[in-house]
Design a protein around this nucleic acid. Structure first.
Length: 555
RNA sequence: GCGCCCGUAGCUCAACUGGAUAGAGCGUUGGACUUCGAAUCCAAAGGCUGGAGGUUCGAGUCCUCCCGGGCGCGCCA
């Protein structure tokens, strides 16, 4: 938060400098305020003067000096402001500023960390959207963890968020699913079947066939086409409710389950395509209908209607995004896909621009692969053969908290090794317990404090100036930085930053714990430290909640 | 062949989008519990950021070319 205050000071003084003629009025303001790597350089530093010097034709150090003197008048914020190196301005924050942080946290409670970057804008996050042809596997789990946590963060940051799962319930895959179940049913009825290679071979298909036969023993008597259709509908419903259940148990719920089929039933494919056609962005060639993707930066034009008259998957996607932007009017749409779809991004971005929208309205997040390890060695997975670790198995073996947390310990776009053995371990190697332990430790501390007669310590009347050791300041600074972390997660769409932040905060707390005692004979100090502890506990709890991970009182 | 992503300590990863002396964890070695939870902490060792150029006050970060890896390049989804 202090960084925000510094930025405000900078903006104020820059316009002052312009008034005085020190800086030209048409400068491009680009600067950063960030904690320097070296302690000696202060709590925060800015490159302001360096970035302005060139434009103003001034010496950066002289410029920095001018600003430093202005900033120094804010004694309530800064203990010292100095010019260093080529023209950095280093800020040493006043102790009193840090020490009032727990007071702010106490006042805002669960809302501490909320930032208003969203401004009520309507954003849709679409994630997982796996074909409903089988259970979710470990890779989908990663997408779910990232999408759900990002959604929680966006809503915490003032966006109006809607979470959506796109159900691909039409097309060839669905037909194959129906046939797969139908053939297994005939097999169960005693027939010898030569099961096709490209059909779904998982054991779950047999189970669905068995259930269907039990429910409707006569369904095999139907004409084949009709039976397959019935098998498809039944399988879709069974698989989809399984997916829903898995996600719920993973802590993920959706606002909408959006059916691809409904795009056709509502004539949105037609509407979207004629919208493009009116703009002259479709043409016919070789009997097919093409979209002029190349005009908007894609490698080549793309087919939307095949020569057979059937629309492509891409046509559905055009209609789907038409629906997102023109029917539901989202201000921002975030699509979360597997990284293997990255080649698809330019195509869809082209569509957005063809719609006449700025391409920033669509953000595509690519989730890299998950490699499953068991005790350090790679376990191979093959979806087609029906051999994979399902999200369900992972939940049962590892648990929700560890699974979600581990999925968020990497940037989404870098591949992740998931070691099941390690994820089950309750040790330092497993980062989730490190953070949860910090929270449980504090909970235990408050139980002890209560016994010692410190009932619900409040900042009111506490002397927070007693928080004056290096470890106190370490914690106070991190607490102050929490809202900045939330903002960074949201503006960069990188939820993993929160995970790293929580690990830092837990480290600082554990460090404090071994160096200092919270409870002592010194009543005022005990009181101040308990206020600090309460603030840390609050932030840990808020952070874990955003990750969808529990914050235990005991473990 | 073309396009996108990646290459940072022995291993797994950070580095706040161009900032000052590149940081953590694991592993290794050595230490810390009669006191609020040792699922913890402290210390040491470990680096030419794959390589070579370039851009500027300043490069792990931007540009070019190599080397090595992943993924895409359908009238599939």
């Amino acid at each position: 938060m202090i960084a925000k205050l510094i930025e405000e000071e900078i903006l104020k003084e820059v316009s002052e400098a312009q008034k005085e003629g020190l800086l030209p009025s048409d400068i491009k303001l680009r600067f950063q305020v960030e904690p320097p790597k070296v302690k000696e350089h202060g709590d925060y530093a800015t490159n302001l003067a360096l970035s302005l010097a060139g434009q103003a034709g001034k010496n950066p150090r002289e410029l920095a000096q001018w600003f430093a003197e202005k900033f120094a008048t804010r004694g309530d914020l800064f203990e010292k402001v100095e010019v260093a190196g080529p023209g950095f301005i280093n800020f040493f924050i006043a102790k009193a500023y840090w020490q009032q942080v727990p007071r702010v946290i106490e006042a805002r409670g669960k809302d501490y960390g909320r930032v208003e970057v969203g401004g009520g804008r309507k954003v849709q996050v679409e994630f997982v959207s796996a074909n409903p042809t089988g259970p979710l596997h470990i890779g989908h789990g990663r997408g779910a963890a990232v999408g759900d946590t990002l959604s929680r963060l966006l809503s915490f940051a003032g966006f109006q968020v809607e979470k959506e799962y796109y159900v691909n319930d039409v097309g060839r895959q669905m037909k194959i699913l129906g046939r797969s179940v139908y053939l297994r049913a005939r097999e169960l009825a005693g027939e010898k079947i030569d099961f096709p290679e490209d059909h779904y071979r998982g054991e779950y298909i047999r189970e669905i066939a068995r259930d269907l036969l039990e429910k409707e023993p006569s369904f095999l008597d139907l004409p084949e086409e009709e039976a397959i259709e019935k098998a498809k509908d039944f399988a879709l419903q069974v698989i989809l409710s399984g997916i829903k259940k898995d996600l719920e148990d993973f802590g993920v719920t959706y606002d909408h389950w959006f059916s691809e089929k409904s795009l056709y039933e509502g004539n949105y494919v037609e509407k979207a395509l004629s919208f493009l056609k009116e703009k002259g962005l479709l043409y016919e060639k070789d009997g097919a209908v093409w979209f002029r993707a190349k005009d908007f930066g894609d490698e080549k034009d793309r087919v939307v209607i095949r020569a057979t008259g059937e629309p492509t998957y891409f046509a559905s996607d055009i209609a789907y995004h038409y629906h997102k932007f023109f029917v539901r009017n989202y201000d921002l749409v975030v699509d979360i896909w597997g990284a293997d779809h990255h080649g698809y991004v330019p195509r869809l971005k082209a569509v957005i621009q063809a719609f006449g929208l700025p391409k920033e309205k669509l953000e595509v997040l690519l989730i890299q692969m998950v490699n499953l390890l068991e005790g350090g060695k790679l376990k191979s997975m093959s979806t087609r053969a029906g051999e994979f670790v399902t999200l369900r198995e992972l939940l049962e073996e590892v648990g929700k908290d560890a699974t979600r947390f581990i999925f968020l310990t990497r940037r989404a776009d870098s591949p992740l090794d998931f070691d099941v053995e390690l994820a089950k371990k309750q040790s330092r190697e497993n980062p989730v317990y490190y953070v949860q332990y910090a929270h449980a430790r504090l909970a235990s501390l408050f139980r002890k404090a209560k016994e010692a007669g410190f009932e619900d310590p409040s900042a009111q009347g506490a002397d927070l100036a007693l928080l004056d050791t290096p470890e106190d300041f370490n914690l106070l600074k991190l607490l102050d930085y929490f809202p900045d972390t939330i903002e960074a997660c949201v503006t960069k769409l990188e939820p993993h930053l929160l995970t790293f932040y929580l690990l830092d905060l837990a480290t600082a707390l554990h460090d404090y714990y071994t160096k200092h005692r919270f409870l002592s004979e010194d009543q005022p100090r005990t009181r101040a430290r308990l206020v600090l502890a309460k603030a840390v506990k609050q932030v840990l709890a808020t952070g874990l909640e955003l990750l969808g991970v529990s914050a235990p009182e005991r473990m």
